[in-house]
Design a protein around this nucleic acid. Structure first.
Length: 885
RNA sequence: GGGCGGAUAGCUCAGUGGGAAGAGCGCUGGCCUUACAAGCCAGAGGUCACAGGUUCAAUCCCUGUUCCGCCUACCA
């Protein structure tokens, strides 16, 4: 049954139809009983709160390309999908919702609040999954996971308990990053630094027992209320006499020791540093070294607490103002300098971070990190592009303990229970019945939950059923590939490596492909506040998922960010339409009885067939190679170039002769078979990039498999490579372009047939004769004279092309002046290149030292140019003669 | 402060183990040439950031400079 396609490709209905078809046929499903070799990817789980942004779109398009490629290439593919509970982000969303009802989470209480979050998750949490489907992602949805699922939660507890028992998790008082808005601790990675214009304040601390001051410089005067020392560098002679002495803390009247610590930079500020161990990470360290008291003056909400004396109750910003005012009044504010520096902010809510001492849980990362470093060094996991390995090593080598406790409610609650009788702590996978030290039965669970990344770190094996020993783990772990952005290389990738090695005894993935960031056209990060976000769903609506995906792949060059604009997506929409119309053409030119798919024997192929099949084989080879190396843009580019500029622009035009007016019926059948074979192959090549349109075309074409997904990814056939055919066709193409060029020069429209006289050299005579017909057709020639002895037409435009003179005689008036200028220009260019070649060949060093092959090339080029020059000059002479007459 | 990356056509970007510079978009001219005007044909446009060096030969390798990004850091 022959189907005629509409002139334009309409993506919407096609996308819906085929996605549900694939799902119904369970084509995304990975079968643990398959005999095929496994290939697996776990999705970087998007936040449940999230909706699809460009980063997701790129990330998942690339994964889908890999996964669809491998599936067609004969692998048993598992693409494991799921979402992340995103502790702080999700809690914030629901809290905002509550706030509109005038409620806080404390009003509800922990249990009711969590119920609320779950409700929210059920209702809105699936959004991004639907969006991924719109994009065409071929995840195994039957295996979808959520980090708070019962199974995954159990994995979290098992890991926690084991790490605790091995002493790799501990609890203690340390300085951490505190967000006073989210009221929780944050890991170092969740703090983003931004440059601020602020001031450096010079404050006098009066010396005890003698007159004078020691002046310290600070950017945060409000923290002075918690100062417990002043420090100077031990090698700073200016302060030798003060070390060991004391000073008085203004406003608080506390006596502070003056200590010596080499951390202090003598050349910064005054060389004297105020020490606030409870509110500065460095001061904290110094405090430990010197046994200083840690006085917290700022509470969980960023207000001054009871230790702040008369400032207690003030907000920390307000406090700063009042402290400065008070100092001024006492004459202790020496001066204020403008100062620009980096200030830490909460990644989630942008609030300025308050470093604070508090009781938190930590992972002792060093021993885990050492293993993870080794795995990459030994190549058990490859990071691609390789340059990211440096970032990875740098971060892993300087790694600090990981603060994993969060003072929020939404997340995996830390499996530790405190006995109300003896106060001892019991850590266990399941809630204990009684205290392990005193047997008491009044137990209270730790209220903190774990950092979301703690559960994400287990994702490659927790999703596959760990700690059970499942078939999935056996087959699909380690996974083959992880695709992610560099922004979470340290957050997530490094941690998965550590946990995978620790608990599975092997790396979680063989390859890590790090892709670029998607930016706007000016190279800025897309952000809501800048208003420069391009919504992927909108792009899919407007241009279709295929065009959008292809655009992303085409721009995904390694090592460079993607600057995306809608115009560029539009360009690839046009490409989709080109493919569509090629298919339309093929279908229109097939007979009811469709031709043998099995191509005719090599001996029966026409030159054009040999050429297109050779080009196709090269394209297949290039695409496979590029995909194997994660060079998505090269793969996309190779297909684009081949389909549009070789298959459509040349081959289809070429075979119109055979299709419309075959000399023998076999010519038509042969052309049909080849054009169909090539199109089918391109559709298969393209399927991983543009799944919808290729399925639609596949179904319209004669096909044996009931989905293009089930067909075998093309393999280049050795017998198709045909350099001779490529060379010969290249020659014909250049002749045709030469003639078209002349036509364009004198503005002959395509509809007008012209006569052409070719005067070939002896070498090219036969070639011209062999291809006369196609030259006539593609250059739109009425009469083509090929004769070495033909008289040169009187009034004609003229070109030298591929060892022949080509004359295009004109009936009307030729603009001789213009012709003269054109030839003169061409002569000039030829001379310039020729003299370059002369220079090279005149240089004995070149002839001696350059490889013979190069020298030969230059020589033959020189001869060619000389011949060309001669003929051009001859042409010019004739023009001049004609002008004179 | 340290580290990394970039600088190639008007724009966005490929590219090369050193041996006549590429694409897409845009632009110019001509076309409804029976698959496609989301198209066809042809064309213009580049001291490959700057200065040195290595080489017979440098856009490519080396050194330095300038500009632009990003990451990172405990100078308060």
């Amino acid at each position: 049954m022959k189907r005629i396609l509409p002139k334009r490709f309409d993506p919407r209905p096609v996308e819906e139809r085929w996605y549900s078809y694939w799902e119904e046929q369970e084509l995304f499903h990975a079968d643990v009983n398959s005999p095929l070799p496994p290939y697996s990817i776990v999705i970087p789980p998007p936040n449940v709160t999230g909706s699809l942004h460009m980063g997701h779109a790129l990330n998942n398009t690339l994964q889908d390309i890999c996964v669809r490629y491998k599936r067609m290439d004969g692998y048993n593919v598992l693409w494991m999908p799921g979402t992340d509970h995103a502790g702080i982000a999700t809690q914030n969303v629901v809290e905002r919702q509550l706030a509109q009802e005038g409620l806080s989470r404390q009003d509800l209480g922990r249990e009711a609040f969590l119920k609320r979050v779950w409700e929210w998750k059920e209702k809105y949490g699936g959004l991004i999954i639907h969006q991924l489907k719109r994009l065409g992602a071929s995840c195994d949805w039957s295996r979808e996971r959520f980090t708070m699922d019962e199974g995954l939660s159990r994995a979290v507890r098992v890991v926690f308990v084991r790490l605790y028992q091995e002493g790799l998790i501990y609890k203690g008082d340390y300085i951490i990053n505190w967000c006073p808005r989210c009221t929780t601790a944050l890991s170092d990675l969740e703090v983003v630094h931004e440059e601020h214009d602020s001031s450096l304040y010079y404050i006098r601390y009066p010396l005890l027992d003698r007159g004078g001051f020691v002046t310290v410089a600070t950017t945060r005067p409000e923290t002075m209320l918690g100062d417990t020392a002043v420090a100077v560098n031990p090698d700073d002679p200016r302060f030798h006499h003060l070390v060991g002495k004391q000073c008085r803390l203004p406003l608080m009247n506390r006596i502070l020791p003056i200590i010596a610590d080499s951390y202090v930079q003598a050349d910064f500020g005054t060389g004297a540093l105020k020490i606030t161990p409870a509110h500065d990470p460095n001061d904290f360290e110094i405090g430990l070294r010197h046994g200083l008291e840690k006085i917290r003056v700022i509470d969980d909400r960023g207000r001054m607490n009871e230790n702040a004396g008369r400032f207690s109750g003030l907000d920390r910003d307000q406090c700063r103002k009042e402290v400065l005012q008070a100092l001024e009044q006492e004459g202790l504010l020496e001066r204020v300098e403008p100062y620009r520096h980096m200030v830490g902010h909460c990644q989630r809510c942008r609030t300025v971070i308050e470093p604070t001492v508090s009781k938190q849980w930590f992972v002792r990362v060093k021993p885990l990190a050492d293993e993870a470093i080794r795995a990459v060094k030994e190549g058990r996991t490859r990071i691609i592009p390789k340059k990211w390995e440096n970032d990875y090593f740098a971060w892993m080598e300087g790694i600090r303990d990981w603060c994993i406790s969060r003072q929020i409610w939404w997340g995996h609650r830390i499996p530790a229970w405190y006995c109300s009788r003896c106060g001892e702590m019991t850590v266990a996978e399941e809630e204990p019945q009684q205290c392990t030290s005193c047997g008491g039965e009044q137990l209270q669970q730790e209220s903190d939950v774990l950092d979301t990344w703690f559960s994400s770190a287990l994702w490659p094996f927790s999703t596959m059923g760990w700690p059970e020993r499942t078939r999935e783990l056996e087959i699909f772990y380690p996974t083959s590939l992880l695709v992610t952005g560099f922004d979470i290389l340290t957050f997530w990738v490094a941690r998965m490596l550590m946990m995978g090695l620790k608990f599975m005894g092997d790396v979680p993935f063989r390859d890590v492909y790090i892709h670029a960031l998607v930016r706007d056209i000016e190279g800025r990060k897309m952000s809501k506040s800048l208003g420069n976000v391009i919504d992927p769903l909108e792009m899919i609506e407007r241009y279709g998922a295929d065009a959008f995906r292809f655009a992303l792949a085409a721009f995904a060059a390694q090592g460079r960010d993607i600057k995306l604009s809608t115009e560029r997506i539009e360009g690839y929409r046009n490409f989709m339409n080109k493919l569509w119309n090629a298919a339309r053409f093929v279908l229109m030119n097939l007979d009811e009885e469709h031709p043998e798919q099995d191509l005719s024997p090599l001996s029966k192929r026409s030159l054009a067939d040999r050429w297109i099949l050779s080009r196709l084989a090269r394209t297949v080879e290039a695409v496979r190679k590029a995909l194997d190396e994660y060079r998505f843009n090269d793969a996309a580019g190779a297909i684009y170039q081949f389909l549009w500029h070789e298959y459509c622009d040349w081959y289809l035009e070429w075979i119109k002769l055979d299709l419309y007016s075959p000399r023998v019926p076999e010519d038509r059948q042969r052309a049909q078979a080849v054009m169909l074979h090539v199109l089918t192959t391109v559709v298969q090549l393209l399927h991983p990039f543009t799944p919808f349109i290729t399925e639609e075309i596949w179904q319209a074409l004669p096909h044996t498999q009931d989905s293009v997904m089930k067909s075998r990814f093309p393999v280049p056939r050795a017998e198709d490579f045909d350099p001779e055919a490529e060379k010969e066709i290249r020659w014909v193409q250049q002749v045709i372009v030469g003639i078209r060029n002349l036509r364009a020069e004198v503005h002959v429209p395509p509809s007008t047939r012209v006569d052409v006289v070719v005067i070939p050299t002896p070498e090219t005579l036969e070639l011209f004769r062999a291809h006369a017909e196609v030259i006539r057709a593609l250059a739109r020639i009425e009469e083509l004279v090929i004769d070495p002895n033909a008289p040169r037409p009187k009034k004609a435009v003229y070109a030298i092309s591929e060892n022949a003179e080509i004359h295009l005689p004109l009936v009307g008036v030729v603009d001789l002046k213009r012709e003269q200028e054109r030839l003169e220009k061409e002569i000039q260019e030829t001379q310039r290149e020729l003299s370059q070649n002369h220079r090279k060949l005149a240089n004995p060093d070149f002839v001696q030292k350059a490889p013979q092959e190069i020298v030969r090339k230059v020589r033959s080029r020189k001869e060619q140019l000389e011949d060309r020059l001669e003929r051009l000059q001859e042409g010019l002479r004739r023009i001049r003669a004609a002008m004179d007459s």
